[in-house]
Design a protein around this nucleic acid. Structure first.
Ligand code: NAD
Ligand code: NAD
Lengths: 207, 207
DNA sequence: AATTACCCGTGAAACAATTCACATTGTTAT
DNA sequence: ATAACAATGTGAATTGTTTCACGGGTAATT
């Protein structure tokens, strides 16, 4: 029962800050102010400072702001990106393939170690550098790769059984693209990206 | 300055409820209780009732619960899904194509009216039933289709200029898949889906 | 050296979302 | 009929998040 100290909302913003800070650094800016980061992140200086307070960072100085590199390092340390994260993906359809190709030649820190599908015509080949297996080989391959994260891109009606299988095989975190909430035990973290819901929301709020 | 009465979080759940209720109805259940819907939505009966209260729905009865069809109708009415929503998509890459094919033969209520890319090799053809044009034809085609919603699936460094162009052409709602926040005027609603951020969050919270 | 301007860190206040808890009410059983 | 029950609708309490506002400090300016 570990106590979660950093709010999820803050974690989300930290991931964003890290990316923005890297852009900053690439532009040669070795230090910055909270209001500069806030502007890029579309939030407020107070929120930036509060977020940094949440991770126990107090390395800013009034007239020079924060050291870009130092701040990046601190965020990386908090997010614990010391080791490469191994991911397995189930559902080699349109969306699954888009994700495979994106992570194949980008995204340091994350590797899709293997992909699976129940359709024989999608398996036993390499897509975007990722080996694709039949679902029946899941348990075996996951032991080989020692992946702890899973991505679900199968149709909604099969998503729960895929999640169950992942958890059975030791997956601890799941990103679910199927448009239904899945039941998972407390020790597994799950997040859902629901593209259709996001569009409906935009349609409503734009109206 | 219109007053927004329904919280965004509630809107998100309403979209989910609507889908779940349709599944319920398809199974032949003509009525249901808040705790049943809550179980499917992975939340609490109190939250379901609160959400329904937000949309001014008080048609439940203590012993019979809610009428499935009536509730669906009410949610649809609130979300204002009377007319087909026209969408334009910019960035016919891996993710863009996945979205095109998904919405082509699914998703009642939404039509991707046209897609655009700056790469000539991606344009002047039909992908998943959607016509693909060069970006220079954007203004012209958007007038023809009268689309009010836009989806951005271009690389991050081009996302802001694409958003600016969309807004210039009268787009009122944008769904942005590029991993940076975009600046838009107050009268335009924008939402971002950041897949990499979601994965980093899962990695952190699963750890 | 003193003055000024600016920004950080954070306690406190304000605001937003969720959960609690209960009076109310329709349904069923006796 | 009437009693017992089970689920609704909602005010109040709680919990979570964001914003305010100010003390303290640092560097540039005079
Ligand atoms: N593509 C999009 O833009 C989009 C938008 C909104 C939601 N989604 C959701 O994302 C998910 C995937 O969408 P898609 O467009 O890639 O669909 P898709 O039909 O192209 O791909 C689904 C893949 O899953 C495989 N599959 C089916 N059952 C399986 C099982 N039990 N085990 C393993 N593999 C299985 C299929 O063989 C297929 O390859 C769906 O749940 C969909 O609702 C996608
Ligand atoms: N595919 C994924 O799984 C994934 C994951 C995380 C984030 N993203 C983000 O989604 C976006 C799209 O990803 P993708 O994998 O489809 O990339 P992609 O490179 O496959 O596609 C990008 C497309 O945008 C087009 N483009 C570039 N500049 C343009 C411009 N100014 N106007 C019009 N079109 C232009 C390119 O020609 C290309 O067709 C990127 O911002 C990426 O960071 C994608």
């Amino acid at each position: 029962m570990e106590k979660r100290v950093i709010p999820v909302k803050t974690v989300e913003r930290l991931v964003l800050y890290k990316r923005l800070l890297r852009d900053i650094l690439a532009k040669g800016e070795s230090s910055l102010y909270s209001h500069q980061l806030a502007k890029m992140a579309n939030n407020t200086p107070a929120q930036v400072r509060r977020d940094l307070m949440m991770i126990g960072y107090a390395g800013g100085t009034p007239r020079k702001g924060y050291q870009t590199q130092e701040l990046i390092d601190r965020i990386i340390q908090i997010l614990d990106e010391s080791k490469e994260q191994k991911i397995v993906l189930v559902g080699i359809g349109n969306l699954g393939r888009a994700i495979l190709s994106y992570f194949s030649f980008q995204q340091p820190g994350f590797t899709i170690a293997a992909a699976f599908d129940s359709d024989e015509s999608k398996t036993n080949r390499v897509i975007a550098g990722c080996r694709c297996y039949h679902l029946r080989e899941f348990a075996e391959k996951i032991k080989e790769t020692d992946a702890k994260l899973g991505v679900i891109t199968v149709p909604a009606q099969h998503a729960q059984q895929v999640a169950d299988m992942m958890i059975e095989c030791g997956i601890k975190g799941i990103l679910n693209f199927a448009p239904i909430p899945l039941k998972v035990p407390d020790n597994v973290f799950i997040d859902r990206i629901d593209i259709t819901m996001a569009l409906e929301k935009v349609a409503y709020l734009a109206g």
